[in-house]
């Protein structure tokens, strides 16, 4: 039996996977499109369709986020407009590279290897952070001042960005924070992020925001808002760039968005009752397991066997499901425990 041209099993998989990705996105504020593209790759979709649909999926929640908050916070509109142009140029270059690689028959391999490295790298970073959090807990005497000693407040520009801004290569662009950044820095950094987005089909929020903060040099609050603003339009351009070649599967994206919109609300609500630090180690593990899943799929393709395909889907999708359920379980547990914790006045 088929629905919307897909088997019922696939429809259920896409809606439930969208829901899970939504929970993770709502809870961690990241983890959207970079789980969608590899899953579509593992399910056997061509690289260009997996990437185009991943970018289109990223665009949907960006629209919902803007509708929900009416604005995207503190935005440096001039920087955002320049970033939109260079990100779009980068996405265009990335998409052309993918179509070129596809004609050579190596797009799936290149994208798969890129995802093994990307997810493995992010997973390792999160595991490292979880480890340092647990070390801090053991060594802490309840004084948080030491944690902040080397930190930079939300309104400050990090030292590395100040150093980059000190190299004045014209034309220089005035930033809303009062600083000035070279157009070459903005173009180089934004263009690189765009190429990565277009090449592997990620929205790129997790590299775009740190790039604006650490390389271009804006305060953290402006970096977050400007990243969302530029990302919204870049997501639209990514959908357009892959859409012109018909490489966006609207049915798949629609089903994923349907599940994700609900999941994101629950994930975002869970942040009030579940401590992110309690589950961060599982997020790191999920990323590493997902990376192993893609590596297995690439190995299976290289060996010319389908035997490992099911295992790779199970690892990639299953690890996300387990983490999504764990967050919801912890949120439900906290909700059940909270009325009992409240003292009843006599």
């Amino acid at each position: 039996m088929e629905l919307l041209g897909l088997s019922i099993g696939l429809v259920a998989l896409f809606v439930s996977f969208g829901f899970t990705v939504g929970v993770l996105f709502g809870f961690f504020g990241m983890g959207g499109s970079f789980l969608i593209t590899p899953t579509l790759l593992v399910l056997g979709y061509p690289a260009s369709v997996a990437i185009g649909s991943g970018l289109a999926f990223y665009f949907g929640p960006s629209v919902i986020a803007v509708l929900k908050h009416y604005d995207v916070g503190e935005v440096d509109y001039r920087l955002g407009a320049i970033l939109f142009v260079v990100l779009s140029l980068g996405i265009e270059i990335g998409s052309r590279l993918i179509f070129g690689l596809e004609s050579l028959g190596v797009a799936d391999l290149v994208t798969g290897v890129a995802y093994v490295l990307l997810l493995g790298g992010i997973g390792a970073l999160f595991l490292q952070r979880a480890r340092s959090l647990s070390d801090d807990d053991e060594g802490s005497n309840g004084d948080d001042a030491a944690d902040d000693a080397g930190g930079v407040s939300d309104e400050e520009i990090p030292p590395i960005a100040r150093r980059i801004q000190s190299y004045r290569v014209p034309p220089m662009i005035a930033l809303s924070s009062g600083g000035r950044a070279s157009l070459w820095t903005i173009g180089g950094a934004g263009g690189t992020v765009g190429v990565i987005s277009g090449l592997i089909g990620v929205g790129g929020g997790f590299i775009r925001m740190p790039t604006i903060y650490y390389i271009i040099g804006t305060p953290l609050t402006a970096a977050v808002g400007t990243s969302l603003f530029a990302g919204l339009f870049a997501g639209a351009y990514g959908t357009f760039a892959y859409g012109t070649a018909g490489s966006v599967d609207l049915t798949v994206v629609g089903l994923l968005l349907f599940g994700s919109a609900l999941g994101a609300r629950l994930g975002s609500a869970a942040t009030t009752s579940v401590d992110e630090n309690d589950v961060i180690v599982y997020f790191g593990l999920m990323m590493v397991i997902a990376s192993v899943g893609i590596a297995l799929r690439e190995l299976a393709t290289w060996l010319g066997t389908d035997a490992l395909d099911l295992l790779s889907v199970f690892l990639l999708v299953g690890s996300s499901f387990v983490l999504g359920l764990l967050i919801l379980y912890k949120a439900a547990e906290a909700a059940r425990a909270s009325p009992r914790a409240e003292p009843v006045p006599e």
Binding site: A56, G60, A236, T239, F240, Y242, G243, T244, V248
Partner: peptide, 14 residues
């Protein structure tokens, strides 16, 4: 076709 895809995602999101 590209514009139709952008419009469709926008409509689904709204």
């Amino acid at each position: 076709q590209g514009l139709v895809f952008v419009g469709a995602i926008l409509a689904i999101a709204v």
